[in-house]
Amino acid sequence: MVVAGGFGVGKTTAVGAISEIPAIRTESWMTAATAQIDRLDPGIDKTTTTVAMDFGRITIDNSLVLYLFGTPGQPRFWQMWDDLSRGAVGALVLVDTNHLDLSFPAVNYFEQDTDLPWVVCVNLFHGHLSHDLADVRDALSLPAHVPLISADIRESRHVAQALLAVVDHARAQTAPGGRLGRPGAQTTTGGRPGHPVAPFAIAGG
């Protein structure tokens, strides 16, 4: 299972919150040399950044064990996305409604460059939903078949529910007659999330 999204959206936190083993992190300190690249809003307590991937594991039940791969968020590491997505059963795309512009590359990647089933999850950084999900869907121009949910990914139970939503969606998409189960459908990977579209404003946001 791939956990994807823009820089600082909570991918490392999500994998660490749910993993039943100590999560493997490939993080590097953010220094003054990267201040213009890894820019954050003042007050955000983030001092490291993922440079390759995060890895964790969670047992859903006796028949289902998920291996979680968190993607790096910065454009200079996007070449990892193809490798992490290859062979995955689905993807959980995290978004931050305060920085929707950072979400467009990830949404664009899974919409255009891969046939992986994917679910978009609004990360509730402050424990509440600041924008109506319908407005978020419109702002991101999400296709109708892509589920949109919200969760506080600091809590393991919420991460578990989000991952189960991806599993359920993947099963539905790959079932006979599903979007990926249609005759002649092929699963492909390729490309990088390097083609962001122009951001949209959230009504009332």
Rank of each mutant, 00 (worst) to 15 (best):
G191L: 07
S63M: 12
A23R: 02
D96C: 11
F77A: 01
G73Y: 00
G194R: 06
A134M: 09
R39P: 01
S130Q: 15
V122P: 01
Q112Y: 12
V120L: 08
S63F: 14
S156D: 10
P176W: 02
F104W: 11
S63Y: 14
D168R: 13
Q186M: 13
R137E: 05
G177I: 03
L124T: 09
N62L: 11
R57A: 11
V51E: 03
V2L: 15
R57F: 06
V95N: 02
W118D: 02
R39H: 13
G194Y: 00
L148I: 05
A52Q: 13
L116E: 03
L140S: 01
E27K: 01
P22L: 12
G87D: 10
G70A: 04
V9G: 06
P105C: 08
T47L: 14
A198V: 09
T31Q: 06
A162H: 01
V89F: 14
G191D: 08
G56C: 07
I153W: 02
G73M: 05
F125E: 06
K11H: 03
L129A: 15
L92C: 08
I24S: 10
V197D: 12
I202Q: 01
G194P: 01
V120W: 02
V120M: 05
G204A: 07
T26C: 13
P199C: 07
R57W: 01
P147Q: 05
N108Y: 10
V107W: 04
D61Q: 04
D138V: 09
P117N: 03
S156N: 07
Y109P: 07
R179C: 06
M53V: 03
T71I: 01
D132Y: 04
Y67E: 13
Y67H: 15
S156Q: 09
Q79A: 15
R179M: 08
H145Q: 11
Q112I: 11
Q112V: 13
G10I: 10
Q186E: 14
A175V: 04
D101Q: 13
V119D: 06
T34W: 10
H195E: 14
S85L: 03
I58V: 15
C121A: 11
W81D: 00
L100H: 06
D115A: 15
D138K: 13
A160I: 03
G184M: 07
A185T: 10
P72A: 07
A165H: 09
S85N: 12
V89T: 12
V3A: 04
G178P: 05
D41F: 11
H169K: 02
Q74C: 05
D41G: 12
V9T: 09
S156K: 12
V9M: 04
W81C: 02
L129R: 15
A14K: 04
L140I: 08
H99N: 14
A106C: 09
G204M: 07
P183N: 06
A33D: 13
G205T: 06
V107C: 15
D135S: 11
A201Q: 14
H128M: 09
I18R: 05
A14W: 04
W29K: 14
R171N: 14
G8A: 15
A32M: 11
R76Y: 07
G194F: 00
